[in-house]
């Protein structure tokens, strides 16, 4: 086995180990303390009748599964966008895609709750996807005019601000009953995730991830630029469309369930690429997923525990850890 293969295997194993540790830590953290033996008992007996069982099965487990899957989805979505724009600071949050999704979800929620109906998780995802695609469309339009990547990112940030402003506006004039609901969600949080949500998001995220993984080959061709990719037999137009749809779907899904979460999409792929010493999609897509899952689980523990019983919004925690990584990355680019 070559040196590189050994390094990558070691990295995969350590990430997997870290994920397991974080899962255990997550299930063991919260306002009600339980001993590991009790938790093991609840998990193995599938006992949901008592309080402990309720907490583990109905609150902690779905939440940590959602955090892991959505974190992974967000990182992969970031990696796809970075490949698409050939720019390491592209990401769903920076380009305004998350904010676009947030806007449409807020509008949908207000509309449905206002008329006294509830929104299914599938409906939320559909709304978020529409918003994500809308923002993405704007970014793409700009990218046709602007070749400069820094400028494109600035435009993305502006789109994000516009969407957030409209969201705030809408929220301000929404009925009182909706506001609490909306406000929590708009800040970003994994709290209140139930099994139904987990089922929906798994059904959406896993096929998207699989599809992304199958795009590894054209993606690595595309890393050499459009001209060479085309010469290697990649249908560039179709491939670009696939990338856009997949990354929008993944980030829309995250936004629909947990609100906009910042910096994960940039920081995690960057850390993972440096850890593995390669940018090969075949390695980085699964590695980003694992890394993103770990990152979000860690941030969620902190969000819950740092100022317990008050819970922080997940986005502020990811920003605290993610933003320095991004700054460090910008400073160390050649």
């Amino acid at each position: 086995m070559s040196h590189r293969a050994k390094r990558q295997t070691a990295c995969f194993l350590s990430l997997a180990l870290l994920l397991v540790l974080l899962l255990l830590l997550n299930i063991n953290t919260g306002s009600i303390h339980m001993r590991p033996g009790e938790i093991l008992h609840v998990l193995t007996s599938r006992e949901t009748a008592d309080t402990q069982g309720q907490i583990i099965w109905e609150i902690r487990l779905p939440r940590l599964i959602a955090a892991a899957i959505l974190g992974g989805a967000l990182s992969v979505s970031g990696f796809l966008l970075q490949t698409f724009f050939n720019n390491p600071i592209a990401g769903p949050f920076v380009l305004g895609i998350s904010s676009g999704a947030k806007l449409t979800v807020a509008l949908t929620m207000i509309f449905f709750l206002g008329s006294g109906r509830s929104v299914s998780s599938g409906g939320m995802v559909a709304a978020a996807f529409a918003g994500a695609i809308l923002s993405m469309g704007f970014v793409l339009l700009i990218s046709l005019k602007v070749r400069n990547m820094a400028l494109l990112v600035v435009c993305g940030v502006m789109i994000g601000y516009i969407c957030s402003a409209i969201t705030d506006f809408v929220v301000t004039f929404a009925d009182d009953s909706n506001i609490v609901n909306l406000h929590n969600w708009a800040l970003g949080s994994f709290s209140g995730t139930g099994w139904e949500n987990v089922r929906t998001l798994t059904l959406i995220v896993l096929p998207c991830l699989l599809f992304s993984f199958l795009l590894s080959k054209p993606m690595s061709a595309y890393q050499l630029g459009e001209g060479y990719a085309q010469n290697m037999g990649v249908n560039v137009r179709v491939f670009r469309l696939e990338l856009i749809l997949l990354s929008s779907m993944l980030s829309a899904c995250v936004t629909a369930f947990a609100g906009p979460i910042s910096f994960v999409g940039i920081a995690v792929p960057h850390l993972v690429k440096n850890l593995f010493g390669t940018a090969k999609p075949l390695v980085i897509i699964p590695a980003s997923f694992l890394g993103g899952a770990c990152f979000c689980l860690m941030c969620d523990v902190i969000a819950r525990c740092a100022f317990a019983p008050t819970e922080l919004s997940i986005s502020s925690v990811t920003a605290v850890f993610g933003a320095p990584v991004v700054i460090w990355m910008l400073l160390h680019r050649k």
């Binding site: 050939n86 390491p88 080959k217 050499l224 001209g227 060479y228 037999g233 940018a279 075949l282």
Partner: peptide, 27 residues
Amino acid sequence: ERIDPELMTCRDVVATGRYPYTGRLGI
């Protein structure tokens, strides 16, 4: 056109030439 592939060794760049001959995952 200038290419700027991230974290690729020269051998990685040369190896991309074999893509049309590889399978679904490009191994």
